[in-house]
Simulated scan of single mutants.
Amino acid sequence: MRIDVISAVPEIFESPLNYSILKRAQNKGKVEIVIHNLRDYAFNKHKQIDDKPFGGGPGMVLKPEPFFECIEKLKSERKYDYIIFTSPRGKVFEQKIANRISLASNIMFVTGHYKDIDDRVIKTFATEELSIGNFILTGGELPAVIMIDAIVRLIPGVLNDSESALNDSFMDGEVIEAPAFTRPAEYRGMKVPEVLLSGNEKEIKKWKTEQSKTLTERWKNFNN
């Protein structure tokens, strides 16, 4: 998989993309992530990429020209399965969307910053607009990182244990995974449930199913 990301502040991606699972996925050749600086496609000598909004109002809007130049250049080099704009007005990103996008070969993320992106860019190029929730951030870079992480970890061979992702919460619809425990079996008077130490696979599966059901109901109550 190749992921291209367009950003006005590309430095934001340096740390999260170079550690842990995302770094390992790149080292294994499972994914190539390329960050494009929007300012490299600005026309004037000052590398201006934003301007005041027509119709008045606060904030600055990212200009259309740099986006058109960058996106058209990238599209001339390869065919994209998805061109995703991170936006609070988009559909809320969830596990089933990550599952679908993880099957793609080429993805482009277009991230805004400041007030917004000129709407002509979105209408021309977006195949999807995705949000991570009903709140506002300074820019779309962090939502892009979150989505990239959720997508890349699903690519076969990225995780050392392929079963790990399959058993995660939300992989089987709106179901929360059972709680997890590891050594030591007792810590500060808190003991691991006996059933998990029993070796009885049938009883362990039953316990996990019951715990999953309880946590799922709690999650649904939180979100009602």
Rank of each mutant, 00 (worst) to 15 (best):
I6W: 00
S7Y: 00
I12L: 15
F13I: 07
K23E: 12
Q26D: 11
Q26R: 10
Q26C: 10
N27T: 07
V31S: 11
V31K: 08
I33T: 09
I33F: 10
D40E: 15
Y41L: 02
I49R: 00
I49F: 03
P53W: 00
F54L: 14
P58L: 05
K63P: 00
P64Q: 07
P64I: 08
F68G: 09
E69T: 12
L74A: 08
S76A: 14
Y80Q: 04
D81W: 05
D81T: 04
Y82K: 07
I83F: 08
I84F: 11
F85S: 10
T86N: 08
G90D: 09
F93Q: 05
E94S: 14
E94P: 00
Q95A: 14
A98N: 05
S102P: 02
N106S: 11
N106A: 10
I107M: 09
M108K: 06
F109Y: 14
G112R: 02
K115M: 09
I117A: 10
I117Y: 01
D118H: 13
D118F: 02
D119N: 10
R120Q: 06
K123W: 02
T124G: 01
F125R: 01
A126Y: 10
T127C: 11
N134Q: 13
T138I: 12
G139S: 14
G140Y: 00
L142F: 15
L142R: 01
P143K: 08
V145N: 12
V145G: 00
I146K: 02
D149F: 02
A150D: 13
I151P: 13
V152Q: 12
L154A: 10
L159Q: 05
N160D: 15
A165L: 03
A165D: 09
L166Y: 11
N167S: 13
M171F: 14
M171H: 12
F181L: 03
E186S: 13
Y187H: 11
M190L: 13
K202I: 14
K205P: 06
K208A: 15
K208V: 06
Q211K: 15
S212G: 15
T214V: 09
T214F: 10
R218G: 01
N221I: 08
F222Q: 14
